[in-house]
Design a protein around this nucleic acid. Structure first.
Lengths: 258, 258
DNA sequence: GCTTCATTGATACAGTCGTATCCATCGCAT
DNA sequence: ATGCGATGGATACGACTGTATCAATGAAGC
């Protein structure tokens, strides 16, 4: 609740305001009053009341420019996951992000650029989270645990991954008729089957890899299969428990029983 | 190309037409001419010119009511596959179907009912085509050929299946936020994994089914995997040749080498 | 004080959207 | 020839769309 927008006259001298019909409503009666208020704020900022010199990150205060783009992109994710990408209008996005329409326009220029950028950011976010989960594994040399973690990135295991999966599917459909979105998809996501194939292959010498298996073909079906199973879970056609049983069955088959 | 709508005068006597500003444009100069034309049509219908009693279905002449709904639904499919479901507006659909907006409204009542019905019809259409392809197999007892045919129903192997796949994915995404569409999805598509599992199991006794395989789990990953691979093909991220190699590898693994 | 620049609130603009209304003509029967 | 319900063309309605415009802000240098 800051001071009311324009009902109390000039914020400095209290004089009546001209009340323009167009543009932003005035808050000062003159530019001199505006400059006076500015210098007052500047002085307060110079002595910012005991800041512990970098103890905790300033969670609420973002680097302004990039931070706001990020927050708007997150609003796009939430809307796309909850109500579908088709109801992500500029005004809805602005409301969800808690900013004005003009700010969204200014930050991204056009809706199309906003959508492309939101997809790109979600890709980055997900890759970072996936890497973090892999790094948090207790035994980094256990191929089965590693495979389970990697494959789990495409399953709706928590709110975050459920949302990401929904958003990605919505974007996937759009990308079928939108080259700019298609490029974001095709540019990333490639080395995944290779990673899984490498994990399977690496399990061969010391693990229990049955001979005669083609790691590449196994990885191919495993990755696309897990994606398809995840979509069924989103839909309510399967439970995660069933999916894990199927995945574990195939991991047993490929790597040998646990 | 029937006779032009209203440029040639009365369809019976050829007289000039009053050309009303509101409502449907007239085709007859008077009610008597209208009745004359009706009786003429009725007589032709009574003696329908050597119909061989059910030899071939009257492909072009549809039962009017259901036939038109079908044509409008096909227009929805074409638009959804070509330009995306989000650009399937009532007016676009009407234009694509070659009818007026009012006709689309009249035939389906609301856009939502139209979309649901179009999805239902596409499901029926696809099931019929799939059954026909299975029935056309040279050797109905060959599990490998049967499996390849069944799994092929989810791959963009021709223009029809490519279109159906695109439409289904678009609808799938909508169904995540639209219960009526979700019901159409959940109501069908269930017995598919069971069919594939049955085919795998049946190949056991006389075929070359390796012991230790769980037909149900194999079918589970195979079906969802083929779906996922098909989506990648739609996107251009894979070729159909690569997909067939992966599928055939796994059929070899499950059924034994060809 | 002045000016400049990036930012932004309020609103206008030109569409498209799904749906509803009006009403003439339709097929069909009496 | 008239009546009836189904059909359908033209158009209005109100809501919403993405984008553009105007003017005033915050912040800064001179």
């Amino acid at each position: 609740m800051r001071d009311e927008k324009g009902v109390g006259g000039c914020r400095v001298c209290g004089a009546r305001l001209p009340a323009a019909e167009r543009g932003r409503p005035p808050a000062y009666c003159s530019r001199s009053c505006q400059a006076k208020a500015y210098r007052r704020r500047k002085k307060e900022r110079a002595a910012p009341a005991v800041v512990p010199k970098g103890a905790a990150a300033p969670a609420t205060v973002t680097p302004a420019a990039a931070g706001r783009r990020r927050e708007i992109a997150e609003a796009v994710w939430r809307i796309a996951a909850g109500r579908g990408l088709e109801s992500a209008s500029m005004r809805e996005i602005a409301a969800e992000a808690g900013v004005s329409l003009r700010v969204v326009q200014y930050a991204f220029g056009s809706k199309h650029r906003l959508l492309v950028e939101a997809l790109r950011l979600l890709h980055e976010e997900n890759e970072a989270r996936a890497r973090a989960r892999v790094a948090r594994l207790p035994d980094p040399t256990d191929p089965r645990a590693m495979l389970r973690t990697v494959l789990g990135e495409f399953l709706p295991l928590d709110a975050q991954r459920r949302m990401a999966l929904r958003v990605f599917v919505a974007y996937y459909v759009r990308s079928l008729t939108d080259p700019a979105l298609a490029e974001v998809f095709l540019h990333s996501e490639q080395p995944l089957e290779e990673l899984v194939a490498a994990l399977i292959r690496q399990a061969g010498p010391d693990g229990g890899l049955e001979s005669g298996l083609d790691p590449w073909r196994e990885a191919d079906l495993l990755v696309s299969g897990v994606t398809g199973l995840g979509l069924d879970v989103l839909h309510g056609r399967r439970t995660m428990a069933e999916v894990w049983r199927t995945v574990d069955y195939h991991l047993d088959r490929i790597l040998g029983p646990a």
